[in-house]
Design a protein around this nucleic acid. Structure first.
Length: 477
RNA sequence: GGCGGCGUAGCCAAGAGGUUAAGGCGGAGGUCUGCAAAACCUCUAUUCAUCGGUUCGACUCCGAUCGCCGCCUCCA
């Protein structure tokens, strides 16, 4: 069964074939670290996390690079985001970078995202970027103007192939005033001259300055993954100009295709409009995690497709949380039975069930990482498992086999942790003791006291379920 | 002005030229249960923004209209 990926470059789903068999090189545009990460980052990076996880599930050796932008990313006003932020917070630019880089990783860890294999910083790759620009000048794709270097878009006829735009159709200066020193409004900065008061500046052959924003991705992608990579991911809003410029400068330099599969994920909306830093309508991940669990947020995000926008609304997130509880219940009950039942033969009906749903899950994931459908099949699977749980004659090994397959899909591929380990709960022995007492009371039909214990325990986040033989307990997430 | 996307039940959300339009939440009823909880069963869109067209057949393709959204050198 082939893996199909929607390639933004061709606007078609294509069969995925990496350059080197069994290996995947993947680059994803990372954050500009000048503020706390928000739920837009969450959706974006969860989407790519799933892609990495699924590729690894399929057996590919993936090298996953995601940059940290800490220089050169400018605001409309022409100010560097990092410098502006540092000014605002009265800290050194690199102090700001450190603070928000940590915040970013902490948030990503909290959401159970796999760390990239390499997280290169733009400011740590200035020599490589300078070298990149020098080569472009050498090859006449770039020109120097007043201490800055610009890419000459007219030399690269393919400019616009990713976003489907023609240079002449654009309303130059629609949003930002056109710099007069550029030969053409579409030309973009590779290197910018720094005014003396601009703190972040480096010596270059063209005087003191700093790199243009687009440059870092091309440079670092090539450095760590090679001239042509398999997958480049990013947010849709970066398709133009950012990725278009990356393609232009990279392909101008090497004469080879820069990226084979471009993957763009859609945006997070709030009340139907884009959530963004500039609109100020964003929720930080920390704040979201105060209201919802990490698993719930992941599940909510994955219940819509990565190429669809998702509206971050309370009702929908809570509904997702309820749904997730059902999957949790299934695994919980499976594990209770694994604990309880005796060893035995793996029966073929169980083997077939596991196989059937593994195939369904893979079929959906193979169709451009269709997580909503994959989750749909998990709910069907869950229902089948629940029916199996009704059968008293099934042995431990069967339940173990099913539990393992269920975890593989939900926890390993979707990255959603389903259970809290009982060993991790320090109150564990006391809970056991209370349950013992409560069951004594139940035996004596002292329902009032027994119910009181249950209510009080539940108030402390422990859920009780009275089974036929014993009472099971779990910690609420 | 240019480029692109979306409009599917009370809510979220897949799908796709042709057997019953996934799945989740919510709701209704039932089974089980000391009561709970969980689970299971049944029901909950004759219809896919609107209007035309193509077709033996369209929610799916084409055109128009209405509404919403993104990008056009700031954003994941």
């Amino acid at each position: 069964m082939d893996l199909l990926i929607y390639n933004s470059l061709t606007r078609k789903k294509e069969v995925f074939k990496p350059i080197h068999e069994g290996q995947v090189t993947m680059y994803v545009c990372g954050p500009t670290v000048y503020d706390f990460p928000h739920i837009g980052h969450a959706k974006s990076y969860i989407s790519f996390d799933i892609i990495v996880r699924y590729l690894r599930y399929l057996g590919y050796k993936v090298r996953y690079v995601q940059n940290i932008t800490d220089v050169g990313h400018l605001l409309d006003s022409g100010e560097d985001r990092i410098l502006k932020g540092a000014q605002k917070e009265h800290v050194e630019p690199m102090e700001l970078v450190e603070k928000y880089t940590r915040a970013y990783f902490e948030a990503m860890d909290a959401l159970n995202l796999l760390r990239p294999d390499i997280s290169p910083h733009a400011a740590a790759h200035i020599p490589e970027q300078i070298e990149f620009v020098e080569k472009l000048i050498e090859r006449k794709y770039a020109y120097i103007e007043n201490g800055s270097v610009y890419f000459d878009v007219s030399k690269y006829p393919d400019y616009g192939k990713l976003s489907g735009r023609k240079v002449e159709d654009q309303q130059a200066g629609a949003r930002v005033e056109v710099k007069t020193e550029k030969k053409h409004p579409a030309d973009f900065a590779l290197w910018k001259k720094a005014e003396p008061e601009h703190i972040m500046q480096w010596q270059s052959p063209w005087g003191k300055g700093y790199p243009g924003w687009h440059l870092e991705c091309s440079t670092m992608s090539m450095k760590y993954l090679g001239e042509t990579i398999d997958i480049h991911g990013g947010g849709m809003e970066n398709q133009f100009p950012h990725h278009e410029c990356e393609i232009a400068q990279s392909e101008a330099l090497t004469g080879k295709p820069f990226v084979r599969y471009w993957i763009h994920n859609n945006m997070v909306l709030v009340d139907g409009v884009k959530m963004s830093k500039s609109l100020g309508n964003f929720t930080t991940i920390t704040k979201a995690l105060e209201q919802y669990s990490a698993e719930q947020i992941r599940f909510f995000v994955l219940q819509s497709h990565y190429r669809s926008p998702v509206d971050f609304g309370r009702e929908a997130i809570e509904a997702a949380g309820q749904g997730l509880e059902r999957l949790r219940g299934t695994l919980r009950n499976l594990e209770n039975r694994v604990e309880q039942e005796k060893e035995g033969e793996l029966i073929s009906a169980v083997k077939n069930l596991v196989n059937e749903y593994r195939i369904k899950f893979e079929k959906e994931m193979n169709d451009d990482f269709n997580t909503p459908n994959a989750i749909g099949s998990l709910f069907d699977y869950s229902r089948e498992i629940n029916k199996l749980l009704l059968d008293d004659s099934i042995n431990k090994n069967c339940f173990e086999h099913v539990a393992k397959s269920f975890r593989r899909m939900v926890e390993d591929v979707l990255g959603i942790k389903l259970t809290v380990k009982k060993e991790d709960i320090s109150a564990s022995p006391f809970i056991e003791l209370l349950l013992k007492v409560r069951n004594e009371l139940r035996g004596k039909k002292e329902w009032q006291l027994a119910d009181l214990i249950r209510d009080e325990i539940q108030k402390n986040g422990i859920i009780l379920e009275d089974g036929k033989e014993k009472t099971h307990w779990t910690a609420k997430k």
